[in-house]
Amino acid sequence: MIRLDYQPWGESLAELADAARRAEDAGAGVVWAPELHRSAPIAAAALISGTTTVGVGTGVALAFARSPMVTALTALDLDELSGGRFRLGLGSGVRKLIGDWHGVPFDPPVARLRDTVAAIRAVIAGAHLGDPIVHSGETSIAVRGWRRPHAPVRERIPIHLAAVGPAMTALAGEIGDGWLSHELCPADHLAETVLPMLRRGSARTGNRPEVVVSACCSVDADAGLARDRARGVVGFYASVKSYAELFAGAGFAAEHEATVAALRNGAAADALRDGVPPEMAAAFTLSGTRDDAAAGIARYRGLADAIKLSPPTHGLAPAEIRAAQDAVIDLIRELA
C-alpha cells in the first residue's frame, strides 16, 4: 500500500493550516511545506499548528541558504513543536537561485550537501550534550563551549534529500533517510532512471532511503478541465534547461525548448502554460477524472513508498486552486 502525502496550499498561513488539517482528517500520511513563496520552516510550523497526528516535513528547504547550525536548531524546534512528527526535507536548489537570490556558494553542490547534512546531524545529536561539535569539509563548523539547555524529542530527525541528477540522487541513496522528487516524476522515469541511481548510492552504505514521489494532481469530472489546470505547473518546470532529458525522453523536446526560450524572452514563470499541450500535462501529472488519478497513483505501487500530491497552482486564480485542492483532498479520503 502506498502512503498518500499532501502538499497543502493557502493564500494565508491560516488557510494553509486548515488545508493540512483537512488532509490529515482525510488520511494523508505526511503534509509537506515547500520553499519558494514562503519560508519552508515557518510554513511547516503552521502545518504543525493545524494538525495533531500527521507527519510534517519541509518539502524542501534550501540547504545552502541557511547555516547548518540554524537549520539544525530549526529542525529541533519543529520536532519539539510537533511532538516528534517532523522530518527535514533539504534540497540544493540550482546555481542561479542560490547564487543570485541568496548570495551564498553553490559549488561543489554534491560535496557541499554531503557536508551540510553531516553538520546538521552532528548538531541535532549533540546540541544538548555540551561537547564540541566539529565537522570539516566544503561546509565546516566548530562549536565549542556551548550547550543547548533543552532536551531534544529525538536525537536523530529524518532528513530527506531532494535530487534530480545522477550524483545528487546517488547521494540521497547513500546518506538520506528519504529521497524526494520534484513535481514531475512519471512512474516509468522513476523505475528506469531514478531508482537505479538511488541503488548505486545505497550500495555504498547499505542505506535504504524512503522513496517519496511528488506529483501535481488535478481532478475533475471534466478530464479536459483537470488537465488544463495542470498545464501551468508543467510549463513552470519545462522552463528549466536541466530538465531537457526528462522531457525529451517523453517526446516533448520541442515543447521544452520553446518554453525555455519563452522564459528567456521575458515570460513570467507562472505564465508558461500556453506551450504545454494537454497530452504533455497528462504525461507528467496525475490529471483527469478521479479514476484517471487513481490509476496514475497505482502505477507507483512497488516503486515508491509514498506519493506527495499537490494541487495545480501556477497561473491559476485562488478560487480555481481551492477547487482543485478540495478535489485532491477528497481523492485522498477515497483512497487512503
Rank of each mutant, 00 (worst) to 15 (best):
A323E: 14
A293T: 10
G99A: 05
G126F: 04
D177R: 01
A223K: 11
V123M: 06
F252M: 04
L16V: 09
A17L: 03
C217P: 07
A187G: 06
S12H: 02
A226D: 08
I98W: 00
A111M: 04
V134P: 05
M168P: 09
G59R: 04
V164C: 02
P34Y: 02
A45W: 01
H102D: 09
A203Y: 00
G145Q: 14
F106H: 14
G176H: 06
H314F: 09
A254R: 07
T74P: 00
S287V: 00
K241M: 08
A75L: 04
A26L: 00
A142C: 12
A281R: 12
V117Y: 02
T58G: 10
P109F: 00
G224T: 11
A262K: 10
R154A: 15
R301C: 08
V110T: 13
G206P: 05
V110Q: 07
S242V: 13
A238Y: 14
L335W: 07
A46L: 02
A118T: 12
G251K: 06
A170M: 12
V31A: 04
V60S: 11
R38Y: 07
A295T: 14
G145P: 12
W9N: 09
A226Y: 07
E210F: 13
V219A: 10
C185N: 06
R3F: 06
T205M: 15
R227F: 02
Q325C: 07
G10A: 09
P209E: 09
P34S: 03
V54L: 04
L331A: 04
T71S: 12
R95P: 05
A317I: 06
H189N: 09
S218M: 07
S12K: 02
V212R: 08
G178E: 15
E155W: 03
D274K: 10
L316P: 06
V233P: 00
W101N: 11
G57H: 02
A119G: 07
R322P: 09
G288M: 01
L198P: 11
A167E: 15
P68T: 14
L195E: 01
L62F: 01
A61R: 03
H37S: 09
A119I: 03
A46N: 01
T71C: 08
A294E: 10
W101L: 04
G50W: 02
I332Q: 03
Q7V: 11
H160E: 15
R208H: 08
K96Q: 13
A20Y: 03
D326E: 15
T139I: 13
R21H: 06
S49M: 03
